Simulated scan of single mutants.
Amino acid sequence: MRGYARVVTRSVSRRDFLKYTALLTPVLAVPGALGVMAGAPRAGAEGLRLVDFADRLVSPEQLKAAGFHGALVYVSELRPGATFDFKPATRDYTDRLRAAGLQVVSCYQFGKPGWVSSPSDFTRGYDGGVADARTALRLHTTAGGPQTAPIFFSVDEDIDSKAWKSLAVQWFRGINSVLGVARTGIYGGARQLAWAVADDVIGHSTSPGHRWAWQTRAWSGGDREPTAVLFQREIVTATDPGFMIDDIHVDVDDVLAADFGQWDLDR
């Protein structure tokens, strides 16, 4: 997650039977489950891996060749000054992913920590949440996203409980007013996910015990949020190139539940 400016130094700040199963492992043993190619390389706790973009867009063919099973796509506008080619997601790209049997999940991030003109999205409070959710819903729909899939909204820095209570939770409540809690998800560290669960501003996956929580390894201090559906385990940083697909740097995300927010699942 993030969507920071492309740099050579890789600098960044930083889902009908599947529906009712409580155990992911048996599901993955079924050929074609979740659109996975039989015999495709697997990694991560439950076998499926996605990418999210931090550098440039990766073609469906490249993703498959590298052993990945899908991508998180941005349903946010490109902020002024950024030069990414993956914001916002296009219908052509998502159609190509799905035609290749790859999974698609929607995420949102416009602002960036430390940018005066477009700071972190959560700092804009309730009204900002309303505006961001409207943008996310429009771009998600334009890209072909179904009206049953969640959208993950980013808290892309290690905020404390004071910032959560005074700003971020209000931002999420603004998002809830547009999308409903059922379709609202969060990206962040273990603490931020736990607060979102406790304040009930994110929805429930159809996989029992899971919420629309996408955890990053960053800022989590080794802790894990047990309700998470995704875990970002490889992250592009100033000192770590992350995972490379050809010459493109990507973050790597492990799937933790059968229903992880993917478009091609009937909920």
Rank of each mutant, 00 (worst) to 15 (best):
Ala5His: 08
Ala5Glu: 14
Ala5Cys: 08
Ala5Phe: 04
Val8Met: 13
Val8Asp: 15
Thr9Asp: 14
Thr9Ala: 13
Thr9Ser: 13
Arg10Thr: 05
Arg10Leu: 00
Ser11Asp: 07
Ser11Ala: 03
Ser11Val: 05
Ser11His: 08
Val12Phe: 06
Ser13Met: 13
Ser13Asp: 07
Arg14Lys: 10
Arg15Trp: 03
Asp16Gly: 08
Phe17Ala: 05
Phe17Ser: 05
Leu18Ile: 02
Leu18Glu: 01
Leu18Ser: 03
Leu18Phe: 02
Lys19Phe: 00
Lys19Thr: 03
Lys19Ile: 01
Tyr20Asp: 01
Tyr20Val: 02
Thr21Trp: 03
Thr21Asn: 06
Ala22Phe: 01
Leu23Trp: 05
Leu23Ser: 11
Leu24Val: 12
Leu24Tyr: 02
Leu24Cys: 01
Leu24Glu: 00
Pro26Gly: 13
Pro26Gln: 08
Val27Ile: 13
Leu28Phe: 06
Leu28Arg: 15
Ala29Gln: 15
Ala29Asn: 14
Val30Gln: 12
Val30Phe: 07
Val30Ile: 15
Pro31Lys: 10
Gly32Phe: 01
Gly32Arg: 00
Gly32His: 04
Ala33Cys: 05
Ala33Phe: 05
Leu34Trp: 02
Val36Phe: 04
Met37Trp: 01
Gly39Pro: 06
Gly39Leu: 12
Ala40Phe: 07
Pro41Met: 12
Pro41Glu: 13
Arg42Thr: 07
Arg42Ile: 00
Arg42Phe: 00
Ala43His: 13
Gly44Pro: 13
Ala45Asn: 02
Ala45Pro: 15
Ala45His: 05
Gly47Arg: 11
Gly47Cys: 07
Gly47Glu: 04
Gly47Thr: 06
Leu48Pro: 13
Leu48Cys: 15
Arg49Lys: 12
Leu50Val: 10
Val51Arg: 14
Phe53Tyr: 15
Phe53Lys: 02
Ala54Ser: 15
Arg56Thr: 03
Arg56Gly: 06
Leu57Lys: 09
Leu57Cys: 03
Leu57Tyr: 01
Val58Ile: 09
Val58Thr: 09
Val58Ser: 11
Val58Cys: 11
Ser59Arg: 04
Ser59Ile: 07
Pro60Lys: 09
Pro60Ala: 10
Pro60Arg: 03
Gln62Trp: 03
Gln62Asp: 14
Gln62Leu: 12
Leu63Gly: 01
Lys64Thr: 14
Lys64Pro: 09
Ala65Val: 11
Ala65Tyr: 07
Ala66Tyr: 11
Gly67Ile: 12
Gly67Cys: 12
Phe68Tyr: 15
His69Ala: 13
His69Asp: 15
Gly70Ala: 11
Ala71Asn: 02
Leu72Met: 14
Val73Trp: 00
Val75Ala: 10
Val75Gln: 05
Val75Glu: 00
Ser76His: 05
Ser76Gly: 13
Glu77Trp: 07
Arg79Val: 12
Pro80Tyr: 03
Pro80Trp: 00
Gly81Tyr: 09
Gly81Gln: 06
Gly81Trp: 10
Ala82Ile: 12
